[in-house]
Nucleic acid binder design. Sequence first.
DNA 1: AGCATTAAGACTAAATTCATCTTAATTGTC
DNA 2: GACAATTAAGATGAATTTAGTCTTAATGCT
Lengths: 153, 153
Amino acid sequence: MLQLTRDGEYAVRALVYLASQPDGKISLISEISETQEVPKSYLSKIMQHLVRSGLVKSRRGAKGGFVLARPAHQITLRQTIEAMEGPIHLNVCLIKKGECHRDDLCPVHPVWRDAQSKLIEVLDSKTMADLVRDAEKLQRTGNKTEARRVEVK
Amino acid sequence: MLQLTRDGEYAVRALVYLASQPDGKISLISEISETQEVPKSYLSKIMQHLVRSGLVKSRRGAKGGFVLARPAHQITLRQTIEAMEGPIHLNVCLIKKGECHRDDLCPVHPVWRDAQSKLIEVLDSKTMADLVRDAEKLQRTGNKTEARRVEVK
DNA sequence: AGCATTAAGACTAAATTCATCTTAATTGTC
DNA sequence: GACAATTAAGATGAATTTAGTCTTAATGCT
Ligand code: SF4
Ligand code: SF4
């Protein structure tokens, strides 16, 4: 299906949370889990994955927890999602040349390439720092969709 | 995963084939299956689905087969894919308002909306007629990727 | 030593994906 | 009317993915 998995979704929530914390602040699984509404033990697995991907650093033991591995403006939405799901390929023929042997003469192939590059462009253009800033703005103004909610009789 | 299913892929192949046929020509499952490299019995189920979705008309019995239900320029790539997979929603919060209760204050929500609308725009802009025309062009020139295949030592 | 915390990964249930197979229904032709 | 060709419908199933839980080990502060 053309839909983000829970893995990806939860990873984004976790990283946005970490990015919103004061510099150097260590966050606990339980803290992230509660505020971001992600099952605790599931989140634990996701955090492990993010550590291994190099986006997050962890410290074990008492006073342990998680911190971003680099500044929030150096972590994009795409990186976060790909850390969990692997590289984005909207169709098999975009995995690598030759994955679908029809690609040379296939008129649909270029369309998928186009669609994918536009999607990736959007995900590349948002960093965790951007998202935190956007979130602060929304705290004040509310989301635009709110305005569109019109009475339908 | 953010990837098209085989259902969608095969439906597109089938419709591009039907669109490439002379007007009024009836095509058989076996014919589509062979040229488009789709398992015959699997394709049969897909064609059923496309008939019920109103994109294709079928005729049973001897001399039966499949034809497009409307002109090729009135069938888009998006329609074809959505006929098999249902409406495209890159994330659950795009299914409908309230599907994710965090959407009002979520900074990621608008990003998904943006990404999805760009993806859909690409898929909406290509009709089966366009694709058939593109395919004819490729028959002559070959796909651009071909040119990029450079010797790597 | 003792406790809090993450690390690692085994385990599981449910859903989805990608088919195959069987049987029925329909229609053209002889 | 008999028969062959063809799609219609859907039951079945294996493999994979998804989403999540649980257990045990390792680590580090106090
Ligand atoms: S779109 Fe074309 S190239 Fe891509 S998988 Fe389908 S047939 Fe192959
Ligand atoms: S992106 Fe935001 S609104 Fe959308 S599902 Fe995730 S939390 Fe909910």
